[in-house]
Amino acid sequence: MASLEFTGGTRKTILEEMIKSQRLSIFLSCVCMLLLLVACGPQKNDPSRFDSPSHGTINISVDESFKPVMEEQIAMYETSYPGTNIIAHYKPEAECLRDLFTDTSNRAVIITRGLTEKEEKFLRDSLKYIPGWNAVATDAIAVVVNSASYDTLFTLNRLEQQLKGKINRNQQIVFDGLNATSTVRFVVDSVLKGAAFDTSVVKAARTSNEVLEYVATNKNAIGLVGINWIGNPEVPEQVKMLEKVKIAYLECMVCEDTPYVKPM
């Protein structure tokens, strides 16, 4: 598994660009803060008509790679506050941002980066307002292979060369889409340094779960997915999936005890 970390609107590599960390950014603040802000208006009539931290319904758009962990968080919040209903729409990153710019019913966006200067200018010029955002958590991208594969050691250079189609062309690399997703954006920006990948060796799946299913049924496939789709030992479905796929090791140039690492 490779690990990349970002702050603000850009990402930088750590562990010699071997371990990728993604930060979830919540635009318009976190769900609780949103509910509090809506609740600050006058409430002269029936209180049930207004949102509050313990009552109401909101719609949010969430990067699809965060679905497992977000479903856990939403379920916990709604259990703690039975009067609340958080409707999450899981989409590629670009579609989440589109909702922020155009969907007036959308109350928050949870993605892997902050706003760019261009995006802030658009909101400032069109809405006279720039939504607040903050980094609230970290995630990682895991490199997964078929359980029958013996090819479990990767370097960043090898991944770059394979994505460009220069080596190991018999191995299919699978993403959760070929564009508009945070995983693809990260790989293009931080692994390929802006270069294009070879679409003849890169396959697009519609969701992270489809990436895992494809790798599970194709011995020569290599999948790139958010670690929360495969790295939680407390989720039975993920434990079951680890019988069909396994997480690969990536070279670590700064680790003292081992040349290769993986998240679990």
Score class of each variant (00 low, 15 high):
Val211Glu: 02
Glu160His: 05
Ile141Thr: 05
Ile227Met: 14
Gly177Thr: 02
Ser25Val: 13
Ile60Met: 11
Ile14Ser: 07
Val145Cys: 04
Lys166Cys: 03
Pro131Asp: 02
Ala39Ile: 13
Asn146Met: 15
Ala39Gly: 10
Asn220Cys: 04
Met264Leu: 07
Arg124Ile: 04
Lys128Pro: 04
Glu117Gly: 12
Lys219Thr: 05
Glu160Ala: 07
Asn232Ile: 07
Phe154Ser: 14
Ser147Ile: 11
Thr112Gln: 13
Asn59Gly: 15
Asn134Lys: 11
Ser126Arg: 15
Ile227Arg: 03
Ile86Trp: 10
Leu163Tyr: 04
Gly41Ala: 01
Asn220Lys: 11
Ser54Gln: 06
Ser147Asp: 08
Asn106Gln: 11
Ile222Gln: 08
Ala88Ile: 09
Val188Trp: 14
Pro263Met: 12
Thr57Glu: 07
Val143Gly: 12
Ser208Arg: 03
Gln43Gly: 06
Thr183Phe: 11
Ile86Glu: 08
Pro68Tyr: 15
Phe186Cys: 11
Met76Asp: 03
Lys67Cys: 04
Gly231Leu: 10
Ser147Arg: 10
Phe50Tyr: 06
Phe154Lys: 09
Tyr150Phe: 05
Arg124Thr: 03
Pro82Val: 01
Asn179Met: 06
Pro92Phe: 05
Lys164Ser: 10
Ser182His: 13
Asp63Arg: 08
Gln22Leu: 05
Lys118Met: 01
Phe175Thr: 01
Leu100His: 14
His55Glu: 13
Cys96Gln: 15
Ser25His: 05
Asp46Ile: 15
Lys203Ile: 10
Lys219Met: 13
Gln172Ala: 01
Gln161Arg: 11
Pro131Lys: 02
Ile110Thr: 08
Thr155Ser: 09
Ala148His: 02
Thr13Tyr: 13
Leu34Tyr: 01
Ile222Gly: 09
Thr13Ala: 06
Ser52Leu: 12
Asn232Tyr: 09
Lys20Cys: 03
Asn146Trp: 09
Asn232Phe: 13
Glu119Met: 08
Val191Leu: 12
Asn106Leu: 04
Pro131Ser: 07
Ile74Glu: 15
Met241Gly: 03
Glu210Asp: 09
Asn209His: 03
Gln43Cys: 07
Ile141Asp: 13
Thr258Ala: 12
Thr116Pro: 03
Thr79Phe: 07
Lys240Arg: 14
Asn146His: 15
Lys262Glu: 00
Pro233Thr: 07
Val184Cys: 13
Arg206Met: 06
Cys255Asn: 06
Ile14Gly: 02
Lys164Val: 11
Met33Asn: 01
Gly165Trp: 13
Ser190Lys: 06
Asn134Met: 10
Gln161Gly: 12
Arg124Asn: 09
Ile141Phe: 06
Pro236Thr: 00
Glu95Tyr: 10
Ile173Ala: 04
Glu120Tyr: 00
Ala75Gly: 15
Asn59Glu: 15
Ser21Met: 05
Met70Pro: 14
Leu28Glu: 08
Ile58Gln: 01
Leu37Ala: 14
His89Val: 11
Ile130Asn: 00
Leu37Ser: 04
Cys255Pro: 03
Gly194Pro: 04
Arg185Met: 12
Asn146Ala: 04
Ala180Gly: 12
Leu250Val: 07
Gln171Asp: 07
Val145Asp: 00
